[in-house]
Design a protein around this nucleic acid. Structure first.
Lengths: 258, 258
DNA sequence: GCAAAAGTGTTCTTCGTACACCCATGA
DNA sequence: TCATGGGTGTACGAAGAACACTTTTGC
């Protein structure tokens, strides 16, 4: 007979949520960790998370804990596993429902209030509390799997990004190298990126000559992107056109794959 | 203050496991359901499952409940989600960790002891208890996703199977049609199937003439499959060579995709 | 002006897709 | 003998992989 105010006929485990927050610094994939201030594992780093309340869903709990501990307000959490090893918490039986989330650099600004929250490059993570090392490996596996087939990478970049930035992101997550030229081709031909007109500098457009045809956009019925007649400037920004992606995915059995 | 013998400072949800068992009858995908004998949802059908014990992992609990309720002994359970809607069980707060499992016809034999367990074609499922309709949709999504890239389909067929059987399975799960000839080619060229020599009848081998070259197997260094000189007999059986699959997957970044 | 990164195009090969015929089996 | 399903080959086109050169930018 244990003490406490909430009693049950059979033993109940405690239920927590944990959230693996990924970020991208332009070159490496990072995760956001919290330094534990209390036992067990005091002083070790762990994922933001905590006990689920009895009147909230696990996802609501994860969002709440994330906000409380890091001030980050993220809504697109992806549940990737529930971990239930019997001895994973020395205090009592605790199972944890794990999510991952993707944060933009712009999300993070101002999030530094949380003094004990810190970003770590994915390849340089300290030993974590509980079974969080294991959970991290699983999170990475799921992120790799998911980004392979869904355009979630854009959630790690700012609204506007360059193709090389995007490539570095994919390379960091999947731990592979792509040929720059093939990456360009694939991304642009996919037809889900909008070129952002940098208002100051339109000099380069319509300037040049020799009708260098590019069949990008020839596929789209209604939308008629500007035909390129000159090379893009260095550092040309693009944005992800989610509407068009959704439409393509629906219409054709289109799939952007990496 | 609730009554009971196990008391906690904060409220704890109950934790159950549920297992969506898929089977294949040669033409359609089926799932195994249990008729509930008690309230709530008495008389409705539900997935085998039940409360997780305090000293077992969720997976162990799912395996145990499955065995108890259906006599099926399956070990390759795949966790695909944890469901935590606040009102999903009218009795108390219950979250459920959901798995799916794949059963062979040979597994099922003798499993009929469980009088209240019954197979239902996936397209003809009665209204289910709790949120199990929703969970079933999620299970299907995950099965489709998984079979796309992992050779789990073989776990639904007997050890030996014909290519058309395999094709019907894929078609049933993915709800698509494949061209028979292309399906043969893809499967055989993948190099993960062993042709089973039907001991009675080797008549057809080495019999015929005109050196019909097939480059199947030319890729494998050590293993040297018999070169085909005559067409296979109708109903030729194959088996899945997991070792070779694992090796291919490792060596090359090989991936069997559907 | 030099190094590092950005931007572009072409060729070859691979793979998916579409498609036609013969054989075996059983009603 | 006819219908149904099983087993095999071929040809075309799309997409991925390999690959070189020019331009821009910042030290």
């Amino acid at each position: 007979m244990k003490k406490g105010n909430y009693c049950y006929k059979y033993p109940h485990p405690a239920v927590t949520t944990d959230c693996v927050v990924f970020g991208f610094d332009g070159h490496r994939l990072n995760i956001l960790l919290i330094e534990r201030g209390a036992e067990p594992y005091k002083g070790r780093w762990a994922f933001p998370g905590g006990f689920m309340k009895i009147d909230e869903t696990a996802e609501q709990g994860a969002i709440r804990e994330l906000q409380e501990e890091t001030t980050l307000q993220l809504s697109h959490l992806k549940q990737f596993g529930t971990f239930s090893a019997v001895d994973r918490d020395p205090r009592e039986r605790v199972i944890t429902i794990a999510y991952y989330a993707l944060a933009r650099k712009s999300d993070v600004k101002g999030g530094d209030d949380a003094a004990d929250a810190k970003w770590f490059p994915i390849n340089d993570v300290p030993p974590l509390a509980f079974d969080h090392d294991y959970i991290l490996r699983k999170a990475m596996q799921h992120l790799k799997q998911d980004i392979h087939f869904e355009p979630i990478g854009f959630d790690l970049l700012d609204e506007q990004f360059t193709i090389p930035e995007l490539q570095r992101l994919y390379e960091a997550i999947l731990d592979v190298r792509f040929d720059r030229r093939n990456f360009y081709k694939k991304m642009l031909q996919a037809g889900i990126l909008d070129e952002v007109d940098d208002d100051d500098e339109q000099i380069y457009y319509g300037q040049n000559n020799e009708m260098r045809r590019m069949d990008i956009g020839a596929l789209f019925g209604d939308s008629t992107p500007q035909e390129r007649t000159a090379p893009r400037r260095k550092g040309t920004k693009f944005s992800f056109n989610k509407d068009r992606y959704d439409k393509l995915k629906e219409d054709k059995n289109f799939r952007l794959e990496f």
